[in-house]
């Protein structure tokens, strides 16, 4: 009887809720807020890029190392591009083209690196030196045409090449760039090692048949005026043999990445230069290319949810911490 009265009294008494009940209620309200939290519009940064890969003969040089096995420059460039495609932020777009002879050839316009990753990855891995339609390699011309392509696509450029000009540049040096400097941003990626190595040679059926020798490639560009000091060459004649009568020697049958040439070349249309090493290209691309805003959305739900979790964990952890502390004091 008395017990029942006591209970009734307690029920009717207005009691102050204890702090932990308030914290629990707050966590509940925050969880409800997390359900209803809006997704806000935001702007993410992404890139629109055009990758042009040099597929000329010197790209077959195997001077990269992949787990102890030699890897050709073309394969190294492809694998770097595939990694880049996987690392670019979603919303970025990447187009693909190849370069040989004196121009760049567009395979497809930039496509989404996230939504269309599978075909993009497949297309990059299908790049092959057999796609080249000529043996010549006028890198400067190819770069300028790539810049034009990229400008038409409103994209930034990644030009992967070893910089081996075949035939060598004339004495007048790099041809002038006639487009608008700085309109297209991007970078030249120098592919290849620093030590000159022989270039593999293939027959009509694509079988490897050794290497190019010194007499297989033009060692000197004989268009335009002859170089200074040509008079001193063996058999020189001002009309009949202005370059001398002997074959000129040189190292054009060996290939190494022509860093100086590529740096000078990159400066013409206002691109930057990076060497292809084991570090991913993403950093160099982020430094050189223009980030473009793409619409994204930012979810606000994690804020109340994290707060709710914090409150809840605090609620459970507080008595534990306290009891640990008291135990420590209580232990003699």
């Amino acid at each position: 009887m008395t017990k029942a009265r006591w209970t009734m009294a307690r029920w009717t008494l207005p009691h102050r809720p204890d702090a932990r009940a308030v914290v629990l209620a707050m966590a509940f309200v925050l969880a409800i807020a997390a359900i209803l939290a809006p997704r806000l519009q935001s702007r993410n940064e992404a890139y629109r890029l055009l990758a042009i890969v040099d597929v000329t003969g010197s790209m077959n040089v195997r001077d990269y190392d992949h787990g102890g096995r030699p890897l050709s420059r073309l394969e190294a460039a492809k694998s770097a591009l595939r990694t880049l495609a996987a690392q670019l932020p979603c919303g970025s777009q990447l187009g693909l083209g190849i370069f040989t002879e004196r121009r760049s050839f567009l395979l497809f316009e930039p496509i989404d690196t996230c939504a269309d990753f599978a075909p993009l990855d497949g297309a990059i891995s299908a790049l092959d030196w057999r796609m080249a339609w000529e043996g010549d390699s006028y890198v400067a011309q190819g770069l300028y045409s790539a810049v034009n392509l990229a400008a038409g696509l409103n994209a930034d450029l990644i030009f992967l090449t070893d910089g081996q000009e075949a035939p060598p540049l004339p004495r007048s040096g790099i041809p002038p760039f006639t487009g608008e400097m700085g309109k297209v941003r991007g970078l030249i990626v120098g592919v290849g090692g620093a030590t000159p190595v022989p270039i593999p040679r293939f027959d009509t059926f694509g079988r490897e048949v050794g290497f190019y020798g010194p007499t297989d490639v033009p060692q000197e560009n004989r268009s335009g005026p002859p170089p200074e000091g040509a008079e001193a060459r063996e058999g020189w004649h001002p009309r009949n043999a202005p370059w001398g009568a002997e074959l000129s020697g040189g190292e054009e049958h060996m290939s190494a990445v022509r860093t100086e040439h590529l740096e000078a070349l990159a400066a013409r249309p206002g691109l930057s230069y990076a060497a292809l090493t084991s570090t991913p290209l993403e950093g160099a691309v982020a430094a050189a290319a223009r980030p473009r805003p793409v619409p994204g959305h930012r979810d606000t739900a994690p804020v109340p949810a994290a707060l709710a979790l914090l409150l809840l964990v605090g609620l459970y952890a507080a008595p534990l911490i306290r009891s640990v502390r008291y135990k420590r004091i209580a232990t003699p």
């Binding site: 497809f108 496509i111 989404d112 939504a115 269309d116 599978a118 075909p119 297309a123 057999r130 796609m131």
Partner: peptide, 14 residues
């Protein structure tokens, strides 16, 4: 020369 451009895909954007 022949050039593979895209493998068979159902990504029509590509």
């Amino acid at each position: 020369s022949p050039m593979p451009v895209l493998p068979l895909t159902d990504h029509h954007d590509a």
